[in-house]
Nucleic acid binder design. Sequence first.
DNA 1: TATTAAATATGAAAAACCTTCATTATGATT
DNA 2: AATCATAATGAAGGTTTTTCATATTTAATA
Lengths: 312, 312
Amino acid sequence: MIELRHLRTLLALRETGSLVEAAERVHLTQSALSHQLKDLESRVDSPLFMRKTRPVEFTRAGLRLLALADEVLPEVRKAERDLARMAGTEMGRLHMAIECHSCFQWLMPTVDYFRDHWPEVEIDIPSGHHFDPLPALAREQLDLVITADPQPIEGVHYAPLFRYEGLLAVARQHPLAGQSFVTPEALADETLITYPVEQSRLDVFSQFLTPANVRPREIRTAELTIMMMQLVASGRGVCALPNWALSEYLERDYVSAVKLGEQGVWSTLYAAVREETLEAPWMQDFLRTARETSFAVLNGIKPATRDAESVA
Amino acid sequence: MIELRHLRTLLALRETGSLVEAAERVHLTQSALSHQLKDLESRVDSPLFMRKTRPVEFTRAGLRLLALADEVLPEVRKAERDLARMAGTEMGRLHMAIECHSCFQWLMPTVDYFRDHWPEVEIDIPSGHHFDPLPALAREQLDLVITADPQPIEGVHYAPLFRYEGLLAVARQHPLAGQSFVTPEALADETLITYPVEQSRLDVFSQFLTPANVRPREIRTAELTIMMMQLVASGRGVCALPNWALSEYLERDYVSAVKLGEQGVWSTLYAAVREETLEAPWMQDFLRTARETSFAVLNGIKPATRDAESVA
DNA sequence: TATTAAATATGAAAAACCTTCATTATGATT
DNA sequence: AATCATAATGAAGGTTTTTCATATTTAATA
């Protein structure tokens, strides 16, 4: 007999494209999923997907089950929400900090959805605190932190939201504009514009410049993405930002973007959550919504080169 | 986390009204269901139903889950059917015998549905065989037998379809017509009309007359319900039939019906199936459909006094 | 074409979970 | 009060699921 567990696994598998990542999503090991899916295939008596492609490719039977999952799981979630509300579950609290300055784009729709569906959870994004968000999370001053560098802290779980690529924004007439990628060395003569945070926190440094032992000629900071874009557009510097933060400016041909290195610089955005709160149904719903919304928003704005799977 | 198992149990519980019967439906023990439901209640953190009423009464939370089940399980069944078909499941065979002469009423819609949805299963109701159906089932000459008296046979499973009451049909002007029930003794002076089968097979005898050690004055047989009705209506005898077989004649005021004894004579109609075939998805679907269709038909034609639950 | 890195598969052991058994508790009915 | 039927419970047992450790496969790269 098919169980919801199976449908949840399949959905995670489609969203992540691999057993390894799907396993992380559903809080199981890769081995567990391998067994589970093998078992499911024997129950259903057909193979469900091809494992030798990246991302995995579903068979007709697999697609049929995914269709079922798409139909059924949202209903199940609704019911769970209703039930949680009926149980008069203790009013939850969701105070969050956003380390990544350009997340509001997809975070706001998520928060809106959430406010509608979980009116009894107090949601807030306290602005301008001067403490480190992650320790504040552990101290229970915050309940969720959106961050790109997970630091192991006792009792804190990092739920991956999505992967993204860091790109270098340059003026349209900048010599680098045409290139397929830049080398770290090419930045030695540039002014780099960053958010005003520690360099170790910035992917350009930790993943690109520092390993190559290169320092840009000058570093300027700016608080807002739009200010950075103005500086870049007017040729007063270059800056590294996530593909999705940039795409709105790229579409308007306001600036150009170049890959950082041949492979590009990729990282993952996480939601850091205390382990106890992770289990709460509203938290699960928030994470799910965040992933779905960011996926939709990020694909809606079509980051130039990347396809759906690799961003999700 | 809610699982389909839970939804299936709840549905069975609503349909049967008690843990004991629901357990039978889902092939588990009463104890298992008690545990399972208790566990579910703790997951959901609310009680789901009240156990002290007959039939059980669902709470708001329970109803919410039932609504989910109603929405989700039919979709799951559809998917399972599609998958079974994709797997190219070996062509099944469903040859059946109907011991109860008046079942076609609800059996035909069931068969029609089935033919539509499982075209690869060869369905047939071979008529007029002279052997005993149950042994023929064991011998694999038949695949399903509809019967009201389950006899323990190695490898044969009896899936309950529904309960029904046997009523005594009498002419409208018959002295018994007004009574709230008849005693066995009252039949000592009557002509009893039956189907031409062994008396031990007939509930009137096994559950009513024989225990009271009464024999009717005369016994006549008739092959068809309508013939019986004609005999009864013209005052040439009385006959005992299931409530639902009678109801069409009662509605037209063709005959009257009286309860057999104060408690009435109840029995259960079973589908007898070989254990191996029981597991086949199409067999499961057939049984489910048979139950649903008979429920619908039997309630559509509203047997005078009984309410939905007691018939189901 | 080796070689490596990443992903998936597999078998055995462990853990979790579910079901049964035997019994007790509860409630309805006589 | 006694009986009957249903439901709850705790412990034991069985099954299923998960993990761990390791092997195999695949794709990419030297």
